[in-house]
Design a protein around this nucleic acid. Structure first.
Lengths: 129, 129
DNA sequence: CAGGATCCAGGATGATACTG
DNA sequence: CAGTATCATCCTGGATCCTG
């Protein structure tokens, strides 16, 4: 007799979390409402906290802060503090691992644009099988 | 070719929802814990409700049902009912739009596998600046 | 077989005020 | 400037039972 029947499937584990599928693992790291947006902006290069806020005015300070910490913990971005006299300066940039996400992020962006462009024409061309 | 630094805070709207970035739009459609897993399995071909459950034993009936409806509403999958005498048969498959997600889903899967493979070697090679 | 109906816990996100 | 602390809310997803 086996004890637990639900955990015997192949789980993908990373950073202490387990995922039911390799796509879930990826989504666990870049999923959520803001992470891909942050990564998308960081593709251009390092940005400061305030610069990120300017580019994403809808996000709150708290949420941005939390998402940045999560991304940093997962080693997708790195946080650099410039120890000059105040005002404080902190910049965020992609890690090497984070840079490997570039094609993925770009494809996410492209697909979003594709859907935007096609949603009207698709309504007309509506092919049903 | 330079693009505007001052990107307007234009929202991306699809299916009545608005997103702050084109990547958000994509994530809004395939984000969450289960949608990419469902799509990943449907890449092989149509599957019945019970077959999906077998391939994703960790998901509950309710959640699978909700996610399938969301994907259907966003026109990424289609639901086909076979009107035979009971037992009822329903199959889910990708729409044409859903099929355009194939490269993206595969890339999500590949990146997840990459991270799994590299997480040990990265712990050693840990380059810090 | 393929879900719908409920109830519910926890996480994700937001608003606002405050700090080193 | 770059966050934290606190409180409130919303939403996702889980457990369980029920039905056409």
């Amino acid at each position: 007799m086996e004890h637990e029947k639900n955990q015997q499937l192949q789980d993908f584990v990373y950073q202490g979390k387990s995922y039911p599928c390799c796509t879930s693992l990826t989504m666990g790291l870049i999923g959520g409402k803001w992470k891909t947006v942050i990564l998308y902006h960081l593709l251009q290069g390092p940005l400061r906290y305030s610069e990120l806020r300017q580019q994403m005015p809808q996000v709150t300070e708290r949420t941005l802060s939390l998402q940045l910490k999560a991304l940093e913990k997962d080693q997708l971005i790195k946080r650099k503090v410039y120890h000059q006299k105040p005002p404080l300066k902190v910049s965020y940039s992609l890690t090497d691992l984070g840079k490997t996400l570039e094609p993925l992020i770009l494809q996410l962006a492209q697909w979003g644009e594709l859907v935007m462009q096609n949603q009207i024409s698709m309504a007309q061309a509506q092919t049903e099988k």
